[in-house]
Amino acid sequence: MIYKLTNVGSNSDGFNALATLAATTNDIEYSSLELSFAGVSWFDANMVAPLGVVLAHVLDRYNTVSIVDLAWGQKSILQRNGFLDGFGYPAPTNWGGTVLPYIRYKITEAHRFYDYLDEYLPGKGMPEMTSDFSLRFQQSLGEIFINSQVHSNSRLGVFVCGQFYPAKQRLDISMADAGITIPGRINRRFKINMPPVKALRWALIEGHTTKQDSPGGVGLKLIHDFVTLNGGCFQIASGRAFWEFHHGVEKFLELGHDFPGTVVNLEVYTADKKSYGAKKSSVEM
């Protein structure tokens, strides 16, 4: 099959493009997929994490995947973060100062994810934080990673990537798993048929969980509070449900197709001059 991808930004249109790719390729097995970038004029580098989820599902059905018609600029973006390493374009030996590389983890590799944050987050434009707040921020990112382990049971792993755009004054980080989606596990756990957006809305309330043998419900509160003050953006796409929190405005919508996993996107406004801390800072949380 030849599939012509459209633009993929860190927004609902981008997730719709990837969900459509997933739906269109859902039935192919023991075959091949040529993913053409001929119709792509923009691809946000961090969005290779959810693209990795879609392609992992395709590859898991004994297909081969090739990426074709890459313009020079796109090839440069996707090769620089290591995404094209498995597609004939080796990853660079030096990641450079703006890349959080594309890495696929097993869901049991939380320790390695923290190593990743330690290694690649510094120097990427994060606002000033006390060391305590920085640890709590990293703790929250890890909680999101661990949700994949505890809830999604993503046997294909967790995909992480990020990109710092100094000129645009933003840092984008994506974490994507290929497991059971949030609406899917709510409906399975409670034996109900809740619409996807409603299910995601329910799951975002602190204390709500689908875990049966131990309490769960780790909220996204610290990141949410941070984004509120920072002016960044926070998104979750899972199955057909999409949620975005941007400039204090919350938006839910239903995607045209199922995204086969869960993606959490965090966009940090890097020109933020506030200092974040637990106490005695300009912004306390």
């Binding site: 909680e143 309490p215 769960g216």
Partner: peptide, 18 residues
Amino acid sequence: ISMVITAFLNTAIGKLYG
């Protein structure tokens, strides 16, 4: 210990309440 997450605490300690 320099990093602790809730999922760890839920299973290490929280489950005892069950």
